[in-house]
Simulated assay, not measured.
Amino acid sequence: MKNHEKKPSVCNCLNLRRASLAITKIYDEMLAPSGLTVSQYSILKHLKHLGPVSVSELALHIRLDRTTLVRSLKPLEAESFIMDISQKGTRNRQLQLTDKGMVKYLEAEALWNQAQEYMEQKIGRENIEKLTSLLTMIESL
C-alpha cells in the first residue's frame, strides 16, 4: 500500500500514535548525522534554556515522566553532553549542559531546523498551526 492509500483507524488514539511515530521517525532520521535522537535533542535544548535544573523540574518542563527522562539522560551523561553539578552527597541532582553538550546541541539545532522546514513544506504552515492548536487541546484533556 502506498503512503497516500493509508486509511485512518476508527480509533483516535491509534491515529495519534501512528502520526507520532511517523513524525518521530522523520526527526530522528534528519538528526541522525548529529548522533542524537529528537528526544535527546529536546533535553539538550531545554537544558540550554533552563540552565542548571533538577531532574524533576526538567521532567515538568519537557512534560515527560520522570522515569522515562532518567532513562533518556544516561546516554547524554555517558557522552559528557550533560553533567550533574550538585554537591556530593546531595539527593537532588542539578543538571547542566557541558561545553561538549553545547557544541552537540548547536550541531543538531541546524538539523532540527531542517526537519522543521521539511514538515512545514510537506504539511503547510497553516496546517502546522492547526495541528499545534489541536495537539495543545488534546494534551489539556
Rank of each mutant, 00 (worst) to 15 (best):
P8R: 08
V10S: 03
V10Q: 09
N12L: 13
N12A: 14
N12T: 09
L14T: 10
L16T: 09
L16V: 04
R17A: 09
R18A: 07
R18L: 12
R18T: 05
A19W: 15
A19Q: 14
A19P: 07
A19L: 15
I23V: 10
I23Q: 15
T24R: 15
I26T: 13
I26E: 10
Y27K: 12
E29Y: 13
E29H: 09
M30D: 07
A32W: 13
P33H: 15
P33K: 13
P33R: 11
S34R: 04
S34C: 11
G35Q: 08
G35W: 07
L36M: 08
L36A: 04
L36D: 01
T37Q: 09
V38Q: 10
S39V: 05
Q40W: 05
Y41P: 01
Y41Q: 01
S42Y: 14
I43R: 00
L44I: 02
K45C: 00
K45Y: 15
K45V: 00
H46I: 02
H46S: 11
L47A: 04
L47Y: 02
K48H: 07
L50W: 00
L50S: 01
L50G: 01
L50F: 01
V53D: 00
V53C: 12
S54K: 00
V55E: 04
V55P: 01
V55S: 02
V55H: 00
V55R: 06
V55C: 01
L58G: 02
L58M: 00
L58S: 00
L60V: 01
I62Y: 10
I62F: 08
I62M: 11
D65K: 11
D65L: 12
R66H: 12
T68D: 03
T68V: 03
T68N: 03
V70C: 03
R71L: 08
S72H: 09
S72M: 14
L76Q: 13
L76W: 15
L76V: 05
E77T: 08
I82N: 00
M83T: 04
D84M: 13
I85M: 12
I85A: 09
I85G: 06
I85E: 11
Q87W: 13
K88M: 06
G89S: 11
G89F: 09
T90R: 07
T90H: 11
T90V: 04
Q94D: 05
L95V: 03
L95G: 04
Q96R: 15
T98V: 05
D99W: 13
D99E: 15
D99H: 14
K100V: 07
K100F: 06
G101Y: 06
Y105R: 11
Y105W: 15
L106V: 01
L106N: 10
L106R: 11
E107Q: 14
A108C: 06
A108E: 03
E109G: 01
A110G: 05
L111F: 09
A115P: 09
A115W: 04
Q116H: 07
Y118K: 09
M119E: 13
E120A: 12
Q121S: 13
Q121M: 11
K122P: 04
G124E: 14
G124T: 15
E126R: 10
E129F: 09
E129Y: 08
E129S: 04
K130C: 14
T132W: 05
S133I: 03
S133A: 12
L134E: 14
L135T: 08
T136A: 10
M137L: 11
I138C: 08
I138Y: 13
E139S: 10
S140G: 06
